[in-house]
């Protein structure tokens, strides 16, 4: 039963994140920048679970975003899958219980994800206008994501070790 609750929460989190991003956070954005809560949850999951699980979870969360966006399906899926894979590789080398690790992972995840989306947009999209405002938007998002990551990591780490998100064998 606990395993199903865990899966339910893992599905609910990105769904709720997209909902909040498109309503509350987009209305109260900072200079038009909204945080990427989905990416934050993917980063935490990748850090606290096995590499393969993290990659699959990142891919699925990105796929959900792509389906909601209804444009070029696969871009976010690949970007988030790759981000989770790289973060998963860090797992053995960091102290997960340190709150700064959570914040650093979100910083790294935002950079990797932005780089992936940027390169894919340049390669796959027929039109993609670039200017220096893009860099500013990424910097704002890094700050916004880190600000949210600190309190969220406290809850996520606690839940992953002692609460509803605790690992029960398989995914």
């Amino acid at each position: 039963m606990d395993r199903y609750v865990r899966i339910f929460i893992l599905i609910l989190l990105p769904w709720l994140a997209i909902f909040l991003q498109s309503t509350v956070f987009s209305t109260y954005s900072i200079k038009g920048t909204v945080p990427d809560l989905v990416l934050i949850f993917v980063a935490f999951f990748a850090l606290l679970n096995r590499v393969r699980e993290g990659t699959v979870y990142g891919f699925l969360c990105g796929l959900l975003e792509d389906l909601v966006l209804g444009r070029f399906i696969g871009m976010n899926a690949l970007a988030k899958g790759l981000t989770a894979y790289i973060l998963g590789k860090l797992q053995g080398n960091v102290f997960q219980e340190n709150i700064l690790v959570g914040a650093f992972c979100v910083f790294l995840a935002t950079c990797i994800n932005a780089l992936c989306i940027f390169l894919m947009s340049l390669v796959f999209l027929p039109v993609f206008h670039v200017d220096m405002g893009l860099v500013a938007a990424i910097i704002y998002q890094i700050v916004y994501n880190i600000a949210l990551a600190v309190p969220l990591y406290l809850w996520y780490y606690d839940s992953s070790n002692y609460g509803r998100l605790r690992h029960y064998g398989e995914f």
């Binding site: 990659t55 699959v56 891919f59 070029f72 399906i73 696969g74 690949l78 899958g81 790759l82």
Partner: peptide, 18 residues
Amino acid sequence: MLFVIVLSLIIMSKTSIH
């Protein structure tokens, strides 16, 4: 990871922008 890359590229090729 390779599986995720291949799957993403297949989906991308099937869902063109137009």
